[in-house]
């Protein structure tokens, strides 16, 4: 059966494909909702900058312990959080706007990370760090990714209400409950955690893609926060699944294949999405008569 051969067989036949698929599911569950909030908070650029900021941290971990999952993750987490913090302080304490300060930080991070990896590793190591290798995800990495998704979803459930209000009407939240910035900081930690998870599978350059593209595409299909998150999860997972198949069948690198698949969903959504798409704008159909 052609359908079975194309869609199911690779996963049935190979353990590494199954692990990659499960990794995609775990990544989608964490990155979907986080990406949704990034888009709603107009922090897309922040996500981008933080994903690059993980690189020098992971590189330092690599320098100390080689291609060790834990060392690179811990390094990425620490440096990612530090850069988010410092960029925030720089934009608040100086006249530089936050987007410029973030752009500055991520360019420096990227250059520094590549430099550090190059001092000891080979080009293969560098490619691994930059673009990841979801097909070589082992059980240990899978556990890490799944653990991060679990922590993300649980934490989001706990802070969901204040986080939503803080995006939408920050003055109200601070007036009625105080501590608006607490939820912002918790959210930033979740962003970095999920980027570290994505970094294992997709590399520093691609990790943010599975966060932003599905969330941006979901804006054209859903109109409430929870349904946006659900659609994002769906698009992210299907992108992972189709991307892996494309990568397997055509012998292409898996990370870019997954992100490009998500990109195709994004493009389709821009054109034919149900809310605010080009189709709505130029072919609105009959208007309601009341």
């Amino acid at each position: 059966m052609i359908f079975y051969d194309a869609i199911i067989a690779p996963f049935a036949d190979y353990g590494f494909m199954r692990r990659a698929l499960v990794a995609c599911l775990a990544l989608a569950l964490g990155s979907g909702p986080i990406g949704t909030f990034l888009v709603l908070r107009r922090m897309s650029l922040m996500g981008d900058a933080m994903s690059h900021a993980i690189l020098p941290g992971a590189a330092i971990g690599f320098l100390i312990a080689g291609l060790s999952l834990w060392a690179m993750s811990a390094g990425g987490l620490v440096v990612g959080l530090a850069v988010a913090l410092i960029a925030g302080i720089v934009s608040r304490a100086t006249s530089l706007r936050e987007d410029a300060s973030l752009a500055g930080f991520y360019l420096i991070s990227l250059a520094l990370g590549v430099l550090i990896v190059s001092t000891r590793g080979s080009n293969v190591d560098l490619l691994h760090v930059l673009f990841g290798s979801i097909l070589s995800v082992d059980n240990e990495a899978l556990l890490l990714v799944a653990a991060i998704s679990t922590v993300s979803l649980t934490t989001l459930a706990v802070i969901y209400r204040p986080l939503v209000v803080e995006c939408f009407d920050p003055g109200f939240l601070r007036a009625i409950a105080g501590r608006g910035s607490l939820y912002h900081v918790i959210f930033l930690i979740l962003v970095v955690l999920n980027l570290v998870a994505g970094f294992q599978a997709l590399g520093t350059l691609m990790a943010v893609g599975l966060m932003m593209l599905p969330a941006a595409a979901a804006r054209f299909w859903a109109t409430t926060v929870w349904s946006l998150a659900a659609v994002s999860i769906g698009i992210a997972f299907v992108s992972g699944w189709l991307g892996l198949l494309i990568s397997y069948n055509f012998d292409l690198p898996s990370g870019p294949a997954i992100i490009l698949t998500a990109g195709v969903f994004y493009a389709i959504s821009i054109f034919v999405g149900r809310h605010g798409s080009l189709r709505n704008r130029y072919f609105p159909g009959a208007h309601f008569h009341t």
């Binding site: 709603l40 995006c167 939408f168 009407d169 003055g171 109200f172 007036a175 109109t223 409430t224 926060v225």
Partner: peptide
């Protein structure tokens, strides 16, 4: 708050 401080495009009912 002033209306300008609220994100009126936010997906909430």
């Amino acid at each position: 708050p002033q209306q300008a401080e609220i994100d009126r495009s936010f997906p909430i009912t």
